[in-house]
Design a protein around this nucleic acid. Structure first.
Length: 471
RNA sequence: GGCGGCAUAGCCAAGUGGUAAGGCAGAGCUCUGCAAAAGCUCCAUUCCCCGGUUCAAAUCCGGGUGCCGCCUCCA
């Protein structure tokens, strides 16, 4: 079996992936706080993990993916007080939006989407356990985690406790024993949602929900813990402290952090906030293009977004799609005979296919995988250019693109998009007539047909194998 | 101030010790009634700068410079 290398933030290097349980991959990805619309930055990890999961399954693993919704949170509460709408109604609305936006991007859903509001008993139990073990202490109606009780604190973010104490730039709650201690449970303020607990009415601190819910659904030392790299500190550091202090086991085997999506030239667009809303993007661009863009840079690198970026990216994306579409047509009139030339191309394609797998097995390097897929495109186009027309060869190229560009990356557009059976029949009829005109050298009229179809968004290409159209 | 990361052609972007993938743009050619698509060729002696290690470095080490993230809610 192909070895899969994964960059682990904890060790700061690539490691061979060895699952906790053979053949199974358990994944916890920190999800969103549902208090406003879904933006491109949310889409990146979704698409990345979508691809990682599909790849693992192709490699014969079973995946179990848990992604939380932090639906009890300061920002939601603030919004709730602002709008006079119950907090859980707000989160419910944006959770639904998030899910439908991700659906629109073709992202396969997680297996479980636990919500904080539905896991109070588990959270309270975990906090209580930490208090019992003297890793945490109640103070008034709050409960704090005592970082000094966990000697490994800082191991993920490579921070030293002493530096953290000094780096504190905000006023420290006097109830804390140590400025670096953080809240596991917060006493309720009037008007806020609150739950009963041994320490009085209150709600969970920010980090504890992930510890409680990952433990419930994935257990101890599950395989992947993912999230944006801005979560390394304090969120994931604190999760580690809570979970590991409570269980004595590692929280996760591999910490996988993706890079941020940045905006350039924000001043160019007053409403840039709207421009990058996923809801708007999927109206204006095919989801396959958006995925191609998001996967064109390695997941750990920062990714820039700016006006015109998708137009730039779409040229390469179109090349990939055109090659695939053309192959579908070519296969319909391919032949069976085989030559040494066919054999050569077949071998080349087979070796490129192995390169794609190797790229993905090397820390999910989608950018490199695309590079190889473009070589597949060049190889097969060249083959056809040199009159190659053997089914087996064309099928091989088709299958590689179908498997990786299509099934794994989800960047191949369905040809039939935007058309129906009748429109297709009419187009074929029209193109047939146009061919007659061309045979009669009536180019004025045939060009007019082409131009007018173009203005309707239908592109005509006259190839040696006959006319081809696309929307 | 502390921690982490990044710096590769006009643009995007792979590449973690063996002599610079890929895409876009650009130039030339082929094919074509034309156009488009496609193919071929060309397009970084060089990887921010300065030292060092090595037979060999974009890749490792040290020092600069610049940028980003985190230390406060954040995917």
């Amino acid at each position: 079996m192909t070895k899969i290398q994964v960059y682990n933030t904890m060790t700061q290097r690539k490691e061979e992936f060895i699952p906790r349980e053979p053949g199974k991959v358990s994944i916890y990805v920190c999800g969103v706080t549902p208090y406003s619309e879904t933006h491109l930055g949310h889409a990146r990890p979704s698409v990345v993990w979508d691809v990682i999961k599909r790849f693992f399954r192709m490699m014969g693993y079973e995946t179990l993916h848990v992604q939380n919704f932090t639906d009890v949170d300061d920002k939601i509460i603030a919004r709730s007080l602002d709008e006079g709408v119950p907090a859980l109604e707000i989160s419910k609305k944006y959770i639904a939006e998030y899910l439908s936006d991700m659906d629109a991007l073709g992202v396969e859903r997680a297996d479980i989407y636990p919500k904080v509001s539905e896991h109070m008993p588990e959270i309270i139990e975990l906090v209580d356990k930490l208090v019992q073990k003297e890793h945490a202490y109640p103070a008034g109606g709050d409960v704090f985690f005592h970082v000094a009780s966990f000697p490994e604190y800082g191991k993920l973010s490579k921070q030293r406790l002493e530096e953290l104490r000094q780096g504190t730039r905000f006023e420290v709650d006097p109830a804390k024993r140590d400025p670096a201690d953080f809240a596991l449970w917060k006493e309720a303020k009037p008007g806020e949602p609150a739950w009963k607990s041994p320490w009085g009415e209150g709600r969970p601190g920010w980090h504890i929900e992930c510890s409680a819910m990952s433990l419930k659904y994935l257990g101890e030392a599950f395989d992947f813990h993912g999230g944006g790299d801005e979560l390394i500190f304090p969120h994931h550091e604190n999760e580690i402290a809570q979970s590991e202090a409570a269980t004595g086991c590692d929280l996760a085997r591999y910490w996988v952090h993706h890079g941020m999506l940045n905006l350039k030239d924000m001043k160019m667009s007053k409403s840039i906030g709207n421009v990058i809303a996923v809801k708007e993007l999927v109206k204006r661009y095919p989801k396959e293009l958006l995925r191609f863009y998001l996967l064109s840079t390695h997941y750990r690198s920062a990714l820039e977004f700016y006006d015109g970026k998708l137009e730039e990216v779409s040229k390469g994306w179109t090349r990939l799609n055109d090659a695939f579409l053309a192959l579908q047509d070519d296969l319909a009139r391919s032949t069976e005979e085989r030559t040494s030339f066919d054999q050569e191309t077949l071998e080349k394609l087979t070796s490129l296919e192995a390169e794609v797998v190797a790229a993905l097995a090397d820390d999910f390097n989608t950018a490199m995988a695309f590079g190889v897929l473009f070589e597949v495109v060049r190889e097969i186009n060249g083959y056809k250019h040199r009159q190659g027309n053997t089914t087996e060869v064309l099928q091989k190229a088709h299958d590689i693109l179908q498997t990786f560009a299509g099934n794994i990356f989800g960047v191949l557009q369905d040809k039939k998009a935007g058309s129906d059976g009748l429109a297709e029949s009419l187009l074929d009829l029209l193109l047939g007539l146009r061919e007659e005109l061309r045979k009669q050298k009536n180019f004025a009229l045939s060009d007019q047909i082409r131009d007018q179809l173009a203005s309707l968004g239908v592109t005509i290409e006259d190839t040696p194998q006959g006319p081809r159209w696309k929307v």
